[in-house]
Design a protein around this nucleic acid. Structure first.
Lengths: 349, 349
DNA sequence: TCGCCTTCCGAGAGCGCTCTCACGCCGGTC
DNA sequence: GACCGGCGTGAGAGCGCTCTCGGAAGGCGA
């Protein structure tokens, strides 16, 4: 923990280059309006001294921080028992880095933390926030909105539809096309000639789960209600649901599971019961978590979403809102952008 | 993106409370040496105005940031296709939050990024760094050391042993007891009466993999060399290794796999070949990634490490080094702390 | 050649905070 | 009753930067 030598200041660079502080500042910040030879001299001085601007001093006057908060609520980190979290973060990180922004990570658990996050965001320590909050009843989005910080949500927040309140801030979010992906999956099953197609849902207080159910219903508006059974995005939930399904609808010949973990559970129960996949029952998941889809027996057909791209887009959208000279985001409406999904065919359907 | 009203300053609070800036500052920072009635008045003013200190201004003079960087190298995020990353981060986050520090996340990929991270750390934007870097040849640790930022490593860096160079900074790290855990696993197999115990290693340029191999050798110093086969921490690697093992040592009766994914691959090949687990071949993994260990057939016996605690300890160690009034870390040597592992018995061994 | 406009650079104020220092006031001592 | 010590408070400098503004220098038309 040795103390480092005092770092060079603008003043020092100016002295060495034989110019004023202002000129050095100009060069450091782009160098417009400074004649070439001077620019050159300043650059050299900067290099020689190893000058790095003091961000605190800069923020103090510019009121910008070049930092963005990423807020992840506790339940998410649980859900993210898969590469989801890491990938999204990676996308965000790449985009932020490309625009010289730092990523401040805020993990929350429990109500107290919400207050803390609210205070932090309201405290003006960051220029904006990227927020993950899948649950309908999550107080976080409200808090954050009130904090008055530019925000982009990951996943459609529960109240973004039909809310349209007049407090100014449009809700900006990035989501993947859960509904469309679900439709593709179910259509694929129908295309396979299946007639008794079941759906194991996710927790319906999450918009992603609700949207996938909607997609299922789009294709199967008249589905036997017993073919729609609740799950919870876990393998155990998938097992439970599948058992119930086999009990009440033994003639089921296809299952669209709300996610891959659920599908994995269902697969296990099907094998237990001697049903062949996909011959007797075809199965499709959602997410394409490789750790799961490639390891199941048989390998799982599923709906893939481009997680990393979601992260990248969130960051881009936010930065755009922050009025940086950032490339326009194609397909972005005022309220958000929905990324397409693709069906990945493996052996299970 | 509405502009928020200008936030109140110390000055404003002082005016409202009828005291000087200095007094408000004192109260905000603990209130020592200020008489009670005044403290009360200041507190009220702070509340009424919703005053939040401007961190930038504060940092500018204190030269502290109450922020810590977490540096994760690209290969890690790949490895972290499991809750590892999220859990560790959670532990870190909790500890930092408890001490009012922010977490700045730095994800790197490729050489350019190394330079960027080096610059950032050297730039004095954070008080310290937590670094994950498992590979022996990673240039990151060196860069970071040179940046002169207090650092704690996650996982023993390759060069921490026998290096003992004189550049001042002792290498502080937190790791789990890979070697001891491996010993426990292998001893368990031996205790089961197995005599032909194989080991599928991880990539040996990672200290965790090397340590696990060492642990294996501790118990089986005279193992048939053909029983030690290379893997790469992936299921595919596990499959490949297991196939080779069955080819060359068909009498193998136990496998200690370097991690759970590897074990999952091995398990699949064993089933393919009609070997019963654990009757014919007992299998043990490492990590206890629940998504894997509870899903394999049969459920995997494995060595568990307390990931979240690792993260928490890293943060605590760093904060301690930063000379905050932080609780002492029991069992921490100057160079780091090694957390115990526990054998979790399931059905596979 | 003169004046005017443009371009480039430097002086200086000030962002919001901390912290040192000096001063005022109090009680206690001789 | 004069003096001293200590505690509590305020004044003010200054952290390192940006940015406005004014002045110097140079180019061009008349």
């Amino acid at each position: 923990m040795t103390e480092t030598a005092p770092r060079p200041t603008l003043e020092a660079v100016a002295a060495r280059a034989g110019v004023s502080r202002a000129t050095v500042s100009r060069v450091v910040n782009g160098g417009d309006g400074v004649r070439d030879p001077l620019v050159e001299r300043v650059r050299r001085a900067v290099d020689e001294l190893g000058y790095v601007p003091n961000q605190a001093a800069r923020s103090l006057v510019t009121k910008r921080h070049d930092a963005v908060a990423v807020v992840v609520a506790e339940p998410e980190t649980r859900v993210f028992a898969d590469p989801f979290f890491a990938l999204q973060l990676r996308g965000i990180s790449k985009e932020l880095t490309a625009h010289d922004n730092q990523l401040v990570l805020l993990l929350t658990e429990g109500r107290d933390d919400h207050a803390r996050v609210g205070r932090y965001l309201a405290g003006g320590h960051v220029d904006g926030a990227l927020v993950f909050s899948l649950h309908l009843d999550d107080p976080l989005p409200g808090l954050i909105r009130r904090a008055g910080v530019p925000t982009v949500f990951g996943g459609r927040p529960g109240w973004s539809d039909g809310d349209g309140d007049s407090d100014g801030g449009d809700v900006v979010y990035v989501d993947s096309d859960n509904r469309g992906g679900a439709r593709d999956a179910v259509r694929h099953l129908v295309g396979l000639g299946r007639t008794r197609v079941a759906h194991i849902t996710g927790p319906l207080d999450q918009t992603s789960a609700a949207d996938r159910l909607d997609g299922f219903r789009d294709v199967m508006p008249d589905a036997d209600p017993r073919l729609v059974v609740p799950g919870d995005f876990t393998p155990a939930g998938g097992e439970r649901a599948m058992r119930g399904l086999l009990d009440h609808c033994p003639d089921v010949d296809a299952v669209f599971a709300a996610n891959d973990l659920t599908a994995a559970g269902a697969l296990r129960v099907l094998r237990e019961h001697g049903r062949r996949v996909p011959e007797d029952v075809a199965v499709i998941g959602f997410d394409d978590m490789l750790a799961v889809t490639e390891q199941t027996d048989p390998p799982l057909t599923t709906v893939r979403q481009d997680i990393e791209e979601m992260g990248r887009l969130m960051a881009r959208l936010l930065l755009r809102g922050l009025d940086r000279r950032t490339a326009e985001v194609p397909g972005a409406t005022r309220s958000g952008v929905v990324l397409p999904t693709t069906l990945v065919r493996r052996a299970s359907a």
